[in-house]
Design a protein around this nucleic acid. Structure first.
Length: 623
RNA sequence: GGGUUCAUAGCUCAGCAUGGAUAGAGCGAUUGCUUGCGGAGCAAUAGGUCGGGGGUUCGAAUCCCUUUGGGCCCGCCA
């Protein structure tokens, strides 16, 4: 901890002063100041103003005299500003070495407060009947980045992917295979998930329009899928496994990995639902309706809203009855009915497990806290689930991390050969109205490859491929992370190919430039001393930005907000770019200054790499 | 109809949680900067009644109420 510690120390000092003055306790803030107002600022004079019946300026002037920084050499002084703020100035001759040496440490920016507590993050959870589209990508990337940020804050994170292999969407493609005679092999080596989604799913649901008898079959097929002894169930299992494997290839290409896959069909067969149903009944969390519209149903009472039906009058459980046992299982509230077997070894060589009802391999994928990443259209359902979980465990143990959906711009819809009213359209798998994730990644990779090749004549084919991949993946990830969670992303194919301005490639470019500096000198930076020589505005700004990494990690963990790190990465890159332009490192006047600046460049690189790492983005040496 | 969410520069968005100093970026527009560590860059100019109205406060883009306009959700479907 560097900057957080500094803020904390100033806070303590301020508290002591308030104590000595008998001013009581006040909830004041100590935070990084805007440019032109010192380095760190405190608003306590404003908050005391009323109580003391003095102007903030007077209080500020009075308090500023009471600080003593003899035991805190990184702070040069405190100034009472005419506005009333207390503005603290950093002594960079002391601060530089501290920041630069800290940034070299292995886990720079890491925080302790997770205490290695086990936390489960579930994301992706796409029906295995189609390929992943750009909307799913937002979910996957958010989930992945949240899990990385939690790890940075010392949580023991387990990442799960729920595979809904027994829903109507799966039944729809099975209808296509068994009733409409679609081949179970994809033509022309087409990726199997694309074939199922783009052809079988779209064509089958289209046929429902004209063939109502066929539409009736889907429920029949669904029933058979749930009966594990049936022939249809075996076909469904083969098909969904193949689709899932194809989906996982896409996910791995984006640098996302899981610990365990949970199959819905197994949750159904595990009788977990029956267990939790009894528990809900005995705990009086649900009630049986004797009369009214819902007569004969078991319902979850909801405050201020209509009760949610849990079990129909015919005894069949509703959709939400699948989410509840799963949520309870994730929180470890029920005895684990599953065993675990290896599904595969992922691209990063991490083992991926899956649930099974046979065997004897016991592992534990539950956590004392659970974060479920699902888009905001499911917020109502998720509220009911988290409300129930709060009855069994403390409030907040189950968190729904929601976000707005991804829509397609009118231009992009037109490029798919479809029409649209208005400026954007919701994606729809049935209508074929979506852009596949693989397509975006391929298009972007090609674009970056061409760009990189035109700039680097001497790079080998494999180096160019590698750069194209790193930048393309980074670009997709960055665009998904950067906007606020409750902002709709309107995806536009053309716009997503931008590589200038506030983009991932701008950030990565700053890293590559830093590498060039280090490459062009024989001097090996010596970090032992001398960094106090860095005294220009550009150098100090960069050091301060590097120091503030922990502040932003802290912020992003507390608010489960990935975008904070995206913003920080960009700001860090901007600060470096300005330094790069104005301070010619290799033209430094003295060897001492050259050394100090090289240290700063290395420090910047380490920090940017760590920050991008939290976003799952690689930093290329060249591009 | 009920609920929820969004509205900040021509466009796309930060800032809002925890009220405070001069509301920040990118794109687009205009202009300047490469015999110099990579121009995917830097520097600058223009562009804002923070949707409207009211309130709380010494102080509101930020909190509360209201209103307008958009999105999403609201089945004994999944």
């Amino acid at each position: 901890m560097v900057f957080l510690k500094l803020l904390e120390n100033i806070r303590c000092k301020t508290d002591e002063i308030l104590d000595a003055k008998n001013y009581g306790s006040v909830q004041f803030s100590v935070e990084s100041a805007k440019p032109g107002f010192g380095d760190i600022t405190c608003n306590v004079p404003f908050l005391l103003s009323k109580q003391l019946k003095k102007s903030p300026q007077e209080i500020s002037a009075e308090l500023s005299k009471m600080y003593n920084f003899d035991d805190m050499l990184e702070i040069k002084n405190v100034q009472s500003h005419a506005s009333g703020y207390l503005n603290f100035n950093i002594d960079y001759t002391k601060f530089n070495d501290l920041v630069i040496s800290s940034s070299l440490q292995e886990n720079y920016g890491a925080l302790e407060f997770g205490n290695n507590e086990k936390i489960v993050v579930e994301h992706t959870s796409v029906n295995p009947n189609k390929a992943l589209h750009v909307g799913h990508i937002r979910n996957i990337i958010l989930g992945d980045v949240v899990s990385k940020i939690l790890k940075k804050a010392n949580y023991n994170v387990k990442v799960l992917n729920y595979v809904d292999d027994s829903g109507l969407q799966v039944a729809d493609i099975i209808v296509g295979f068994t009733e409409l005679g679609f081949s179970q092999e994809s033509p022309d080596n087409q990726k199997f998930d694309h074939y199922c989604g783009d052809t079988v799913y779209v064509k089958t649901t289209e046929k429902y329009e004209s063939d109502k008898e066929l539409e009736g079959k889907r429920h029949e097929i669904l029933k058979q899928i749930e009966d594990s002894s049936s022939e249809v169930s075996k076909i469904a299992q083969t098909i969904t496994r193949k689709v899932l494997d194809a989906q996982l290839k896409t996910v791995w290409n984006l640098g996302v990995f899981y610990d365990c896959l949970n199959f819905e069909s197994q949750i159904i067969h595990s009788k977990l639902w029956e267990t939790i149903f009894e528990k809900l009944k005995s705990d009086n969390q649900i009630k049986y309706e004797d009369e009214g519209d819902n007569a004969g149903c078991w319902v979850i009472p909801a405050e201020g809203e209509d009760d949610k039906i849990l079990v129909r009058s015919n005894g069949v459980a509703t959709y939400i009855a699948k989410d509840i046992p799963y949520a309870a299982w994730k929180l470890g509230l029920v005895q684990d009915p599953f065993h675990y077997k290896i599904h595969s070894t992922q691209k990063n060589s991490q083992t991926l497990y899956e649930t099974t009802l046979e065997g004897d391999n016991k592992l534990n994928f539950s956590g004392s806290k659970v974060i479920t990443v699902i888009d905001n259209r499911q917020i109502r359902l998720q509220k009911i689930v988290s409300g129930l979980m709060a009855k069994f465990k403390e409030e907040g143990a189950y968190t729904h991390l929601g976000y707005e959906s991804v829509t397609l711009s009118a231009d992009t819809v037109k490029s798919l050969g479809l029409s649209v009213d208005g400026e954007s359209a919701q994606m729809s798998g049935r209508k074929g109205l979506y852009v596949n994730a693989d397509t975006v990644l391929e298009t972007l990779t090609k674009r970056v490859y061409d760009e990189s090749k035109s700039r680097n004549e001497n790079l080998s084919e494999s180096e160019l491929q590698n750069i194209a991949n790193i930048v393309a993946v980074g670009t997709i990830r960055y665009e998904m992370i950067k906007p606020d969670l409750d902002k709709i992303i309107t995806f536009d194919l053309k716009n997503s190919l931008r590589l200038e301005g506030d983009t991932c490639s701008y950030i990565q470019y700053s890293y590559a430039r830093a590498s060039r500096i280090l490459e062009k000198t024989d001097v090996k930076p010596n970090f032992d001393s001398g960094c106090e020589l860095l005294s220009s505005e550009y150098e100090k700004n960069l050091i301060k930005k590097i120091a503030m990494f922990d502040v932003h990690v802290n912020d992003s963990v507390n608010n489960l907000s990935p975008k904070v790190i995206a913003k920080y990465s960009y700001e860090l890159a901007v600060t470096f770019s300005s330094f790069y332009e104005h301070v010619k490192v290799l033209a430094s006047e003295t060897t001492e200054l050259l050394n100090a600046r090289l240290c700063l460049v290395v420090s910047f690189q380490k920090t940017l790499k760590a920050s991008l790492g939290l976003l799952g983005i690689d930093a290329p040496e060249r591009m």
